[in-house]
Design a protein around this nucleic acid. Structure first.
Lengths: 136, 136
DNA sequence: ACCTTTAGGACCAATTTGATCCCCTTTATA
DNA sequence: TATAAAGGGGATCAAATTGGTCCTAAAGGT
């Protein structure tokens, strides 16, 4: 359980590639897709989400493409993952203060703790860090 | 992301009910399903998994049913969740020591950390604790 | 024998995931 | 002002997963 989907994997691979480019360099989606080994049309959707959330800046037309909207050191893994997978919510009952079957559910506090820990870990990792690791 | 499925929810609700019964008392699947408000046939499958993993003991025929195989204080939330949802693996690459695209993936260490933390939290919660919480 | 109760497999519908396609808009430049 | 080069966004679709039912078999009590 708790598996990241392909979408999440692709998102991470794609944005890491962007982070490895010289600052300000515009990358085509086709280029990113090829480098990250991800289906291009699928990655395009992912980068649309990034753009809407302000993680990357997109420009259209000739010479267009994608650039990081912020320094890679200011983009966290959590932002990237949540951009495509939605918020980190281990259990539905974290959505409200109470579960649907009456009072607060017994495991509520546990899931809350899991959520907090995971968010904390992912917030502590920036794309910059990931991009600088020895390449594969 | 990281959501527990219905199956996981049902599993927890069901085993908590069992834990709330007087020690040694045999419960019918129909009884558990009604109390936990879970589809009976679906819960039956879940309890089959529990039985195979030795979390509960099942007996057939008249007077048969389910009992906890161990004290509720010796059954962790992790065991219950993993029984029906599979192992806690935030990313596929935790399965092997390396990812499929060459060397160890950049985020590998992060997912490993997430896994370790989540497992640690869920290992620290027993069904007994959950069963004793004020009821809803 | 017969009834009760779980075991296990086959099966099925709904949802989610993973992707593709097509047309539209934007933009640079010939 | 064409025209080619991008990304934007919706529709669509197949595969996988989830959530759930049904039926028959096996086991155990009376």
């Amino acid at each position: 359980m708790m598996e990241l989907t392909r979408k999440g994997e692709y998102a991470i691979r794609g944005i890491i590639y962007l982070a490895q480019q010289p600052p300000g360099r515009v990358s085509l989606i086709s280029e990113i897709a090829a480098a990250a080994e991800v289906p291009q049309t699928f990655l395009a959707k992912i980068f649309q989400s990034f753009a809407k959330l302000g993680l990357v800046t997109s420009s259209r037309g000739t010479g267009g493409g994608f650039v990081l909207a912020r320094p890679a050191s200011a983009i966290t893994l959590r932002e990237v993952v949540e951009a495509v997978e939605g918020p980190i919510l281990p259990n539905r009952c974290l959505l409200g203060s109470a579960c649907d079957r009456g009072g607060p559910c017994r495991v509520h506090a546990v899931w809350k703790q899991v959520q907090t820990e995971v968010v904390h870990i992912l917030d502590g990792v920036t794309i910059d860090t990931l991009a600088r690791n020895q390449d594969s």
